[in-house]
Amino acid sequence: MNLETIKSELEAAVPGCRLELVANPSPSGQHSLRIDAAHAVAVAVCLRDAPGLRFDLCSNVTGIDWPGKQTTEKVKLRKLVDGTQQEVEELRTTTTPGSLEVVYHLFSIEKKHGPIVLRMSTQDRDANAHLPSLTPVWRSAELQEREIFDLFGVVFDGHPDLRRLLMWDEFVDHPMRRDYVGPDDYEYEPTAHDEVLRRANQHLSEAAAKLPSEAVGNQQSETDGNRLSEGGGR
């Protein structure tokens, strides 16, 4: 199936939908189709039911986190300085809000073709991280969208049962985000006592003393090295 023809077919069937081809430079050649949130359900239904397409199996649903970037660059500008045109260098900081992306891999059991890759992006990573749920179209997305809600924090509007899937209900953060900072392991040690409890308290006080930006985690080799030497020096 050619993605171009699918795109034109969808554009004819769903008036007003905005589709965009996303090229994939990898040898896998699995290019994808970006759809807009407003027409997502209509596009999905068309993909599922159109006789030539019949993508009846939504195999894989997953999220991707694209954090926002802050870039600072020097820009040369022509400005009026003291009444004359001069070239002035200025520092300009641009901040992109970042987004959360959801990817659907569709196959057809009836026609035995696929995959076609659908992508949807949220506007940002906080308040507007909303997307329409495709669970009413393919029920296989039910648990996977719950997982994305849990681990990435995308809110799926129209999902029948949107709860956390893998983390417990009281958990606050979204662990699969790139900027997630892991908790102090010892705090979550289920049976903390004696030595472990002593170290847990030590870790907590150390973490409190540190700057929040330097908080625990992410420096795997170092922390493990420490743990090893601690274990040895009993």
Partner: peptide
């Protein structure tokens, strides 16, 4: 080996 070890158990 220290760098490549997946669970980082070598020091």
């Amino acid at each position: 080996c220290e760098k490549e070890c997946p669970p980082k158990c070598i020091l």
